[in-house]
Design a protein around this nucleic acid. Structure first.
Lengths: 201, 201
DNA sequence: TCTCATCATATGATCGATCATAGGGTGTTT
DNA sequence: AAACACCCTATGATCGATCATATGATGAGA
């Protein structure tokens, strides 16, 4: 049994930061001052530091010794690097396992709904969910964790806001992929790679 | 100018841990007790914790809330997962840039020397150096950092000791790759991928 | 003896305080 | 005014102490 099992404080703090970055409270280049945040959240400096280290590992913030942390600024070129890696990872995933086609269709459908309802959050959630399904289907836990470590969801949100990227006609863009998975097309890996690279600015 | 610029204490502690894992002082499954290590190194608990978090991100240790950290145990299956991801990353690297063939040859030569001199450390260092050269040549910083995050060097050491893996006839195994890079073989990516997968137990 | 509640100990999680550094402001000298 | 040394403040880095949890030891009761 495992009843309450509160998550460590650092995780909650990390989520606050991630949420803040998505909502725009902290934008690229903004400093994140450990003591201020600690005071605001009514916690001590230590867990805040640990949360920041975690975000550093996720490449969401950068910090230099004795200078503190700031939200990572990033250029379209940086984004491109992330997408290149991500494309490679997802292609690798298709070699290791096949996603559930119904699950993919469900994500596409909800992406559609969200778009119709004008919900940007919903679109991003299902866009990411679609790709996460593919990665998870690889059955490779390391692959999943590396993929997650790219911080796809946050970056997608942030880049949409900053670069005014339209989440394309997502639903439509994904149909060919679903079809390829459905018919077991051996080229699906390449298709997926090109699809992901197409997101890059 | 930037004279002394001591690295943060947590980094030194992390290196001590990594070194200890390579040397066998800590083996898979061993607990790492924050306070003991802190006392031994004459530092406080905080930087030790941060070092452990860092190693957690590198997948070298695992920890559960209120239970502490232990060196990650791993089965051949886990290793295989790492190699699959690594193979995909290195293949991606070949699509983005071409390594310096002389640099590759140099690594192979030193691998040879090290093998002749019976230096396991040397072999591993240049084996890893060979692959790192390829990844770095991609010019993609994200790719490099993701690849590094797999902790290749440590795992290679550890798995050689635990699984009594021979570092194959490394030098020989690498010749065909060098040749392929040299003649700009478009199949080099696939070759490299298979080569890396060949390391898997 | 076996079971289970209680408690003791070890240790992770968190805190509040202190130490050390970076940057900026100020006054002095030329 | 310019250059420079000094000091002041904000803040990251580290520490020592306290709080909270998990795990094993102890012993009463059946």
């Amino acid at each position: 049994m495992e009843p309450v099992a509160r998550p460590p404080l650092r995780d909650e703090i990390r989520d606050v930061l991630v949420e803040g970055m998505i909502s725009g409270r902290w934008g690229p280049g903004d400093r994140i001052v450990e003591r201020r945040l600690a005071a605001e959240l009514k916690v001590s400096q230590a867990p805040v530091r640990e949360a920041l280290r975690e975000l550093e590992a996720l490449r969401l913030v950068e910090s230099s010794p004795n200078k503190g942390a700031r939200v990572r600024g990033f250029t379209p070129a940086d984004l491109r690097e992330v997408y290149q890696v991500r494309a490679g990872l997802e292609e690798t995933a298709t070699r290791l396992g096949s996603p559930s086609v119904p699950a993919l269709r469900a994500h596409v459908a909800r992406m559609h709904d969200a778009a119709a309802a004008g919900s940007l959050d919903g679109q991003v959630r299902h866009l990411v969910g679609f790709h996460r399904e593919i990665v998870a289907a690889s059955g490779n836990a390391v692959l999943v964790s590396v993929w997650e470590s790219l911080g796809i969801e946050v970056w997608t949100h942030v880049s949409i806001r900053l670069f005014r990227m339209r989440p394309h006609e997502n639903a439509a863009d994904h149909e060919p992929l679903v079809e390829a998975f459905d018919r077991g097309d051996p080229e699906v890996g390449r298709l997926l790679r090109d699809h992901v690279l197409g997101y890059a600015p």
